[in-house]
Design a protein around this nucleic acid. Structure first.
Length: 375
DNA sequence: GAGTTTGAAACT
DNA sequence: CAGTTTCAAACTC
């Protein structure tokens, strides 16, 4: 009865360090992180062979790993083609199956909501609670007592009483099309290189019309070092970060390195950045870009997650631009830097969301001198 | 660690 | 698509 102990694979991580959160030692991500769904970074599946959404690893977009105690596991790198097919089948039932479970419109919420009857949404049985988010009008729960926010009784109201600000937790967040406004920017991030600020852009308006929005007020880093070819819109979102962002361009080698990561899911220091101390094992593409001979095809909703312990003076982010050229896609990355309160033990999740809208060109990048450091 | 409870996923 | 079954995690003891 093979368990996953013989597997060192991770669909997206390829991490030899099977602990998804090494700084936590034996504790689960649960302690501080609310990772997408696989809060323990492992599973114990017995009957599902880890190829159904019952499996937290699969649900989180991961291969099972050394920590898993699953039996007859098929969710392994060696079966990646089969897993890929299985995931497609699952997505045929639920196109959002592998999308982030926690989304943000005006507040964070569990995308699917919950239908708790007995748990009163105040235990781990409740998916909303387990994600450390409040319940929402679309939840079908009964007697909701979710300490992160009780379901509003008024479906027309988006009031949500957040009892717990959960600032020490983090969620995977994705800015989903919500068609609604936000107190923050609701424009897709379009960079004005001259001012290093968001700028008006016809494409942005076009996105607005399509309901795409960026409500997280996270200014997008400048594309690394050159005018890109036509690009896909995207957004990166971080929680618990309100500090200014500082950017640095990438070198060609780093870009190529990042390609390797996404192509081969190698466990390697992210982009070779000496400031990056997180592990690529925290990086996920879920659903990933599907690479075929180094040609990336975005699956339904590409996303990237990163979760690492904050440390001062540490680069902890990135952004990604997806370029389209002759029907092929390539990736460009540059780092996103941020100052943050040191030693807060927090984890950050970043979310990349691609809008399937082909745009024009990035504006010309600013001089390198415009990139600042503020660590 | 075994057994129970729970709600999501899968199935009919 | 509503009801039922299966499943694995959360929970209790």
């Amino acid at each position: 009865m093979a368990s996953c102990e013989d597997s060192d694979n991770n669909m997206n991580e390829g991490a030899s360090d099977s602990n998804p959160n090494p700084s936590h030692g034996t504790s689960s991500i649960n302690d501080n992180d609310s990772n997408n769904v696989n809060v323990n970074g492992k599973c114990n599946c017995i009957k599902s062979q880890c190829v159904k959404l019952y499996c937290q690893c699969l649900s989180a977009g991961n291969f099972c790993n050394d920590n898993c105690s699953c039996k007859n596991c098929l969710n392994k790198e060696a079966n990646k083609d089969r897993v890929k097919q299985i995931k497609k089948e699952i997505q045929s039932r639920d196109p959002h199956a592998f999308e982030p479970k926690v989304i943000v419109d005006q507040v964070e919420r569990n995308r699917k909501g919950c239908i708790c009857r007995k748990s009163k949404c105040k235990t781990g049985y409740c998916s909303c609670f387990s994600f450390k988010v409040g319940c929402y009008p679309h939840c079908q729960c009964q007697n909701c007592m979710n300490t992160y926010g009780v379901k509003s009784s008024s479906s027309g109201s988006k009031e949500q009483e957040h009892v717990n600000d959960s600032n020490n937790g983090s969620k995977n967040m994705e800015i989903m099309d919500n068609g609604g406004s936000s107190s923050q920017s609701n424009h897709p991030p379009v960079y004005d290189n001259s001012a290093n600020q968001l700028s008006e852009n016809p494409d942005a308006r076009a996105d607005d019309e399509l309901g795409n929005s960026n409500v997280n007020n996270v200014p997008m880093p400048m594309p690394s070092n050159q005018v890109a070819s036509p690009y896909y819109d995207f957004a990166v979102h971080q929680d618990h970060v309100d500090a200014p962002y500082y950017y640095q361009p990438l070198t060609t080698v780093q870009i190529q390195s990042s390609r390797n990561i996404f192509t081969e899911q190698q466990s390697t220091n992210l982009f070779g950045d000496p400031n990056w101390q997180g592990q690529s094992s925290f990086l996920r593409t879920n659903p990933p870009f599907y690479y075929d001979n180094n040609v990336a095809e975005p699956s339904s909703v590409p996303r990237i997650q990163s979760s690492q312990q904050y440390q001062p003076n540490q680069s902890h982010g990135f952004h990604q631009q997806v370029e389209a050229s002759l029907g092929r896609m390539a990736l460009q990355h540059s780092f996103l830097r941020s100052s943050q309160q040191p030693n807060n033990g927090d984890a950050t999740n970043m979310q990349l969301h691609l809008h399937p809208h082909l745009h024009g060109r990035w504006p010309s990048p600013p001089p390198i001198d415009d990139y600042e450091e503020n660590d």
